[in-house]
Design a protein around this nucleic acid. Sequence first.
DNA 1: AGCACGCCGACT
DNA 2: GTCGGCGTGCTC
Length: 760
Amino acid sequence: MSDGGSVLLAEVALPLPLPRTFAYTVPGELVETALPGARVRVPFGRRERSGWIDTLRRGVPTGKERALLAVEEEPAPPAVLELCRWISRYYFAPLGVALRAAVPPPVSSAPPLQRRVVRLARELPSLAERMRLFARAPRQRECVEALEGLGGVADLAHLTGRLGFSDAVVRALEGKGVVSVADEERARDPYAGRDDAAPSPPPTAAQAAVIEALVEGARGAEGRPFLLHGVTGSGKTLVYVELLREVVERQGRGAIVLVPEISLTPQTVARFRAAFGDQVAVVHSALSEGERRDAWRAIRAGEKRVVIGARSAIFAPLQDLGAVVVDEEHEATYKQGEAPRYHARDVAAVRAGMEGAVCLFGSATPSLESWEHVRSGRFRLLELPERIGALPMPPIEVVDLRRERERRREAGRATRREEGGEGGGEAGEILSSRLRAEVEIRLERGEQTILLLNRRGYASFAQCRACGEVWACPHCSVSLTHHRARRRLVCHHCFHEEEVPELCRLCGSDELTFRGVGTEQVERAVGDAFPAARVARMDVDTTGGKWSHHRILERVERREVDILLGTQMIAKGLDFPNVTLVGVVNADVGINLPDFRASERTFQLLAQVAGRAGRGPRGGLVIIQTSLPDHYVVTHALTHDYAGFAARELNERLEPTYPPHTRLVNVVVSGEDELATQAAVETAVAWVRDLLRTRRVDDVTLTGPAPCAISRIRGRWRWHFLLRSPRGTTLGAVGRYFAERYRPAGDIRVIVDRDPVSLL
DNA sequence: AGCACGCCGACT
DNA sequence: GTCGGCGTGCTC
C-alpha cells in the first residue's frame, strides 16, 4: 500500500456497560456500506455481537484490530446518531446502550411470538360443582378464579408466566372442558382502520393565534421551544395538527408527535390519521420485531413523514425533521427507567435544536421545569385559557373525609351499624353520601360517571387487630396488597404472592383487617350501592391483554358502561361527552408520598381527571374526596388554578432545593446484603467527596447517603445520595467521571440517574 | 455484560 | 488428589 500501511478503521459502539468504543478494520467489500450509524456484526472475545459504527478514520492499525464481519442495517440518519452521542454524554450511558434504545434490534432467531389465548368455556355457577371439580386441585381452582378476575380471557403466557400457573394446570382444565385454549389471530390493531375521525372544525380565534405563532416559528422566526399551556378541552390537538400541516404538507418535512402512552390515546391518533392518512406511522409496544423494523425503514425511506409514539419515537429516523410535538409534556412516563435513563421531553428539545425543527410542548399542567423555562425566557409561552365552544370548566366540590367519618360515627351510635365491621367493604366509607347522590342522578339521567382512585387491589395492607402485625413482602420493604378476587396478598414491586391468612402468624388472632381502599374495593362498594349500574374497572389487573384497554374504552364510548372506575390510566386524554360526573375517591393517595414531586403529580392527576367531566353540552361536576381539604394541592385544583399552584410549589422546593431551582443527579447503590450495601454507599460517597475536594469543585453539593424511601426491592437493599448543582456542566462532569470510573465490588450495583423524575 | 483465568475449601 | 466457589481483568 502506498499510504504507509494506513487502513480504514471503524470505531464501533457496543451495547455493553463499557464507556468506550472498539476499533475494527473495514474489509474491502464493506467499504461502501460501513458508514457511521450503520449496525454491524463484529467478533468480540470468543463470540459475536452487534454494534454501531460511531466514526470512521484512516489510520495505522495497532495490530489488535479484528475485521468487521457484516453490515446488518442501513445507517441511522446522522441526526439520530448525533442525538445518541448527546444522550450518551448527558445521561452517562455508553453510546452503544443509547443506540440500542434508539434503533430496532437485529432480527432475532427466536420463533415468532404466537398468542395462545385461554378462555373460560362455561360458567361454573354452583358451589357444589366447584367443590366436585376442584376438590383435589387447588391450583386449577385458583387458575379459574384468576381467569374470572380477568374477565374470562387471558393470554396463556400471562397465566403461566406472571401468574405462575403450570402448563399442566391449564391442560387439565382444558381436559375438564372448563377452559378452551386457542391460537388467536393477532389482535386487531386498533389504530389500523381508525381514520374515521370527524374532520377538524375550524380553529377558534385563540387557536388561530397560537397556530399563527407556531407557523411563523416553523418558518424560522423563533428558535426557542414553545410551551402550549391549554386547559383540558381547549383543543390542543387541533393546534398540533395545524402545525404539522405547515411542516408536513407545505414544507415537505417530517414530524414527530410524542404521547405518554400510545395505547391510551386512540382518539388522538385518529385525529392525525384523519389529517395525514397513510403518511402516519404509529409506533407502539404491540408491534412485533418485524413490524417495528418495517416501520423504521419506511420512515427512513421517507414513506412515512408523521411519526406518533411513546418515548422512543423521539428516535424516529426521519431525514428532515421539521417539528416535534410532546403532548402532556409533564408526564413521568417520558423518563426511561433503565439505561439510557433519558427524558424524552428534554431529548425532544435537543433533537429539534439540532435539526432546526419547531419544538412544541403541550400540557394543561406543565412541568415546573417547563414553567420555569418560560419565566426565564428559554421557552416561549402560548396559551389556550378557554375550553372549546365556551364550555365552562366543571365546578369542583370537596368532600371532607374527616367530617364524613365523624358523621358516620355519630350516626352509628344512634342507629347501630347494620353491617358487620369486619374487613372494610363498607360502601359508606368509600363513597360519601354526597358522591353517591350525584352518581344516582347520573344513573337516572343515563349519563356516565368516572371514579378515580390511584391504588390497585382491594386493600393496600393486611393487619392484625390484636398485635398490629402488618403483612410485608419478604423481598421488598412494602406491605402486601390484598387482591380479593384472586384471594392473594400480592407485592406490587416483585410480584411475590401468598395466600390470604386466616390467623395472625404472630399471635394467632383471627381479627385481621384489610385497610387502605383500592380500586377492587371501590368496585365492590359501587356494586353494593348501585346494583343495577353497569360498572367497568380499568387498572393493570383488568388489562392483561394487549388491547384490553381499548375494549373497555370502546364499551364506555358506546355507553354500555354507566360507571368507569380505575387508576390514573382513566385520567388520560379521553373525550367522552356523556361523562358528566368525575369522582376522586381519595385524593390523599399520592400527596403524602415521600417524594419531592408528590404534590405536583397529585395536582396534575386531579386537574387531568377533572378535565374528563363536562366535555359535552350537559356540563359536568367534579367531586374530590379528601381528608386534606386545606392542602394547597386541593385548594388550587378546586379553582383550576395552575399558575397559583405552580407559584406555591416552586416556593416549596426552595429549601431543601429541588428542581427546577437546581439540577439533580440521584445515585442509587443496591446490594443483597444490608450492611455491605450501606458500607458500599459510604465508600461511594467518600469517593465522590474526595473527587469534589481534589478537583476543587465548589458548585456541586452532595446530600446523603440515606436509605431509599423504598429501602428494599426484590431482595436488594437500596441506599442513595444526591448531587446538586445550579450548573449542568459541572454536574455532568462529576456525574460522568463517577459513572465511568467508579467500580463497586461484589454484587453491589450503582445507578446514576440524571434529572430523576422520582426519588423513591 | 460475558467469559476467561486463578487461587483456596470439602468431596469421590 | 479434583470440583467449584467467585475476585480480577479483558474484550478491538
